[in-house]
Nucleic acid binder design. Sequence first.
RNA 1: GCCGGCUUAGCUCAGCUGGUAGAGCAACCGCCUUGUAAGCGGUAGGUCGUCGGUUCGAGUCCGACAGCCGGCACCA
Length: 675
Amino acid sequence: MITLTFPDGAQREYPDAVSGRAVAESIAKSLAKKAVAMAIDGEVRDLSDEIRADARIEFVTREDPRALELIRHDCAHVLAEAVQTLYPGTQVTIGPVIDNGFYYDFARDEPFTPEDFAAIEAKMREIIKADRPFTKEVWSRDRAKEVFAGKGEAFKVELVEAIPADQDLKIYYQGDWFDLCRGPHMPSTGRVGDAFKLMKVAGAYWRGDANNPMLTRIYGTAWASKEDLEHYLHQLEEAEKRDHRRLGREMDLFHFQEEGPGVVFWHAKGWSLFQSLVAYMRRRLEGDYDEVNAPQILDKSLWETSGHWGWYRENMFAAQSAGDEAEDKRWFALKPMNCPGHVQIFKHGLKSYRDLPLRLAEFGVVHRYEPSGAMHGLMRVRGFTQDDAHVFCTEEQLADECLKINDLILSTYADFGFEEIVVKLSTRPEKRVGSDASWDHAEAVMARVLEDIERRAGGRVKTAINPGEGAFYGPKFEYVLRDAIGRDWQCGTTQVDFNLPERFGAFYVDADGTKKMPVMVHRAICGSMERFLGILIEHYAGHFPLWLAPQQVVVCTITSEADDYAREVAAAAKRAGLRVVADTRNEKITYKVREHSHAKIPVILVVGKREAAERTVNVRRLGSQAQTSQGLEEALAALVAESVAPDVARGHAMPAEWQPSEGVQLDGQHDHAMR
RNA sequence: GCCGGCUUAGCUCAGCUGGUAGAGCAACCGCCUUGUAAGCGGUAGGUCGUCGGUUCGAGUCCGACAGCCGGCACCA
């Protein structure tokens, strides 16, 4: 006999090897009917599985959040059957559950198109309606290989071969159709329900490797109810409305054109945003960093020394004199990174241990030849500006420097309303430079710092490890922030580098007069300013806080009788430091309000004959229908107060929660900027 | 880079199976002096992404290239 414990704490005894379904039936017929799976000691399993030992048991109904994964997974199987029924000769490969849905990869000579969706979905509904039971068999490796090979399923044979020998090889049937699958599944196809939709087709490499053949992937979404599906589709529409490419056009921020794939034409308003962001970052660097500027193009030999020419040549732009008769036909590379330039600045003149830590910052424009398919609005471009810095320090200073950068990054994100942050430590990749000993050392230091970061954040940040994701010259921290609609973006990075200083022969003179190699820390907060602005546009949905908004205020007249007053108001606002224009066009106020609302102007000041006489303004804020009448001076004073950047408002200090905690020394004993 | 799709006026889009391009908004001109998300009328605007092919004839069919979109791969 075995003892099963139910969620309410009740315990019951059952014979050995009792199936979950039998247990459910022993409690209530209705429960057996409602249950789609069970959780044994927290692990979701098939209802048909036999329980052989004492355990906690819980039945999972279709409404249970854990059922969503089953619905999606089953739906993927139904999709695969539908496709193989409609298009004989199509091979099935894998079909996992992903965020919000699932996909299935197929091998077929002719790729699918969205036009095929209607027919496939109809066939899927048929299969679901037939409500065929999912049944499981365990096969031997040889039998599975033989059966799949016999069906011409070469990819499945490969999958079977890849399953570790100690694992059971499970086959799930749904009627006659079957698939190799880890499970678990619901009792029958009918449980999938009708809240699913095929979303898109795409190419995808077999096993994610670009050297392998390309398969056709069909993406689908599936939910427990129609309402959930509708809600999800609505969310997608809302996300589309805040697409930075769309808002960039609508708000007249920037554009791209054919002659410059992946390079941005910033319009006046977009550039205003860009400059506000740069100004903010400069203020945050004040006192700690020296801002520098390294050349845009440098002889390729320098990139050979740094290692970039060897690793990344395919992704670099090179330039040469355009004249046929030019005496100097050397190749110069457009800088893809700022670090080699900063090392040259460090190396210029002898550096003493007293100079360290030396923090060189640059808003450096870099160019990288990104693969054509990788480009995406501002998010992935070929020319971009990094808020880059390199800290040259001693081994002993390394941990403190990483923590200091951590504080700067987290407090910066907080100023833009990003509160959910994950810090990931990426460790040595396969393709790398430097000895294993130096990697061991760097990773050990970083791991300690990561613990510190977690401890100091008091639960405000999560940490994780990304094995094998480090840069070729050293391990790195990656800062991932979550935006207003829950999407994650990797922006900041702190990378420890023992290699570049060595390659360039950088050194400082230590207290004992000997030459020592500095440790170099690469660090970026926004990463790419272009991309960070893209993220901000989407995060704020174009509705920028006043301190960032390129056009803060529009003064709108109701009739031409208020034109003079409107110009007076605009002039006063401008004198107060606000970015303002007067709209005295001969249009109805409804027209002007609509137009400026579409343009996402945060503040509309409406003035008519009455306001002119009373010297007031009618304030209408973006996103609200409400209007408030205020005296001119009072209204302007409030707007000026609101348009102060958050760091300026707190007197350039670190926010209180990011003040250095006890025991952590954040700055050296000296201030290098004073020397 | 790979797979698929798309490219018509400044923007959003229509244009059936080939017969030589159309709407709304925007722009410009006029009327309207207007009270919080589109007042009315008129005018102008396109070598239909580029190049090549098929055809008596191509926005429409075929091919190449480019750019963009959705994925995949990549992301120092």
